[in-house]
Design a protein around this nucleic acid. Structure first.
Length: 500
RNA sequence: GGCCCCGUCGUCUAGCGGCCCAGGACACCGCCCUCUCAAGGCGGUGACACGGAUUCGAAUUCCGUCGGGGCCA
């Protein structure tokens, strides 16, 4: 309850305003997605505003394609923003590259008030100083040369044509970050170098631009990754120097790979787009992600969007970093798959079938109905939508490829050829070709032949599906239809006669 | 190297001084169901990093050690 009050106090007179501020230098990854999610949930829970801001001041690495990819991923997850790209808002522009004048203005303010100074050191000089300090076994921070330049020295550098960067003057003392998740974190200022706020090319550094924007956009709560915690004291110093009110901070722990280092590409799939392509459901991903660092109670695992919005709170966000577990995500996805209605699922399945060349991208009504039935049979054993391809390919191909092991195990028994021939004959003769009728034929024949039902069923399964495992065979045969069933039984018999 | 964060089953976590010889979920194992594979049901294996201190009592508080990670360079 104590924590709750702290958050409400932070809201001040206004509603919660939070933001997600990605650099468009790649795709939205799992860690970023969870940060968006937490921000979104916080905003929705408090009836506040969620802002999307693009931090594209790194001209070299920022791309428009990245902006699009990130936006697509956020949308795909079913999350929306109230201000930002594509929707606008009163606090724009929402691209930092369009706010350069603003940063310069505030940088000037810092300069004129004596909180910042121009630094003429070149990268080479800095590098040299660093190496020298290292050699002497001293601390390798900025040596502070330009902090006390005289007017002449400055003029001399200017005359050389040097373009200065702007550094923030860090005073002695201590800066305390009052974090909603971590509590008070204290930093001694003497360990913090005078840092650059405006680069010599006129572009702001991350820390500076974030402070200016978060203030101008009236962000009340900064919910972001843990890796920014060490940046926070610098930002706080700037807030104070600029006379800005502090927002509340909440630093969420990072998501790690199995080796406990920051999750990255080498750990496998990390981009949200990739999960979409592989047949994951947005709801499943959201539900899995929210559980990485947040728990509502001792037992709940599955949460609908509505429940999440209602129940989410920063108090219950944990401090420990979390290892991303693809296995649990897979389980979660399977769970959501089974809860999705067949029409929706079939539509999704079509995409994957089409991509695999097993179906047209826009099947007609009859084919769609068939796919729906197939998905209905397959769904219990699917973990991703894409599994419809690997599990159900035999529904869509002309012929089947026999799994070698299954063939060996079930079709090479000596009673099999005769059995398949007889089953085929009987199936061709029955009136209706429903699962119930098919079952009667198979079980009936087993009884007559004095065999266990399994002894008949397994060879038939392999002959018709090519594999040892499938959905219930009677339903499968019904869906395949009489013609396909019979021709596949024929094919198996023929294969057994020529082969082996 | 300096600073900061973190440390409960393999993994995600519940736990905020006694309800805990630690609960749930995934994974794993077994049983049931069953035409196979799943799904589902039931059961099981499995953790408080270590050492001190505080306390009648510590997973929970404090200190140290160790381990992991991040940031700056």
């Amino acid at each position: 309850m104590q924590g709750m009050r702290a958050i409400e106090r932070g809201l001040g007179m206004n509603r919660a305003r939070v933001r997600f501020a990605p650099s468009p230098t790649g795709y939205l990854h799992v860690g970023g997605a969870r940060t968006v999610l937490f921000n979104w949930l916080f905003a929705r829970h408090h009836g506040g505003t969620f802002v999307l801001r693009i931090e594209d001041t790194d001209v070299e690495r920022s791309t428009e394609a990245s902006v699009d990819a990130i936006i697509d991923s956020i949308k795909w997850l079913g999350l929306d923003w109230d201000e930002g790209p594509t929707v606008g808002g009163r606090y724009g522009p929402y691209f930092q590259s369009e706010r350069l004048d603003i940063y310069r203005e505030y940088a000037d303010r810092l300069l004129s008030k004596g909180y910042a100074y121009p630094c003429y050191c070149t990268p080479d000089e800095l590098e040299e100083a660093r190496r020298a300090a290292l050699a002497r076994g001293e601390s390798v921070g900025y040596p502070g040369r330009c902090r006390h330049l005289s007017a002449e020295e400055r003029r001399a550098f200017e005359a050389e044509g040097r373009k200065p960067a702007l550094r923030f003057k860090v005073d002695d003392g201590e800066t305390v970050v009052d974090d909603l998740i971590r509590g008070e974190v204290r930093f001694e200022n003497r360990f913090i170098d005078d840092f650059v706020i405006l680069k010599s090319d006129g572009y702001p550094t991350y820390n500076f631009a974030a402070v200016v924007d978060d203030t101008l956009m009236e962000i009340s709560h900064i919910i972001r990754g843990d890796e920014h915690l060490p940046n926070t004291p610098k930002q706080i110093m700037m807030y104070r120097a600029l006379g800005f009110d502090l927002p509340r901070f909440a630093h969420v722990s990072m998501i790690l790979g199995p080796d406990r280092t920051k999750l990255s590409k080498r750990h496998g799939a990390t981009s949200i787009g990739q999960y979409r392509d592989e047949g994951y459901l947005p709801d499943a991903l959201v539900n899995y992600l929210v559980l990485l660092g947040w728990a509502y109670d001792a037992t709940s695992q599955i949460f609908s969007r509505e429940e999440l919005v209602e129940k989410f709170s920063l108090e219950k966000v944990s401090k420990n970093p979390a290892v991303f577990d693809p296995e649990k995500l897979l389980w979660m996805n399977g769970h959501y798959l089974r809860a999705t209605d067949l029409k929706t699922l079939a539509a999704l399945a079509v995409e994957h079938l089409a991509r695999a060349g097993l179906a047209t991208a826009s099947p007609d009504g009859r084919e769609m109905a068939r796919i729906e039935k197939i998905v209905g049979l397959l769904r219990e054993r699917m973990h991703t939508v894409k599994d419809v391809v690997t599990l159900g390919d035999f529904f869509f191909t002309e012929k089947v490829d026999y799994d070698a092991e299954a063939f060996e195990k079930f079709l090479t028994r000596d009673y099999v050829p005769e059995t398949l021939r007889e089953i085929r004959r009987r199936l061709a003769a029955i009136d209706a070709f429903t699962a119930a009728d098919v079952e009667k034929v198979l079980r009936g024949y087993a009884a007559e032949a004095g065999r266990k039902a399994g002894d008949i069923i397994h060879p038939v399964r392999v002959a018709v599906t090519g594999r040892a495992a499938s959905p219930g065979i009677f339903e499968v045969l019904e869906l395949l239809g009489r013609d396909v069933t019979c021709s596949r039984l024929d094919a198996a018999v023929a294969r057994l006669a020529t082969g082996s």
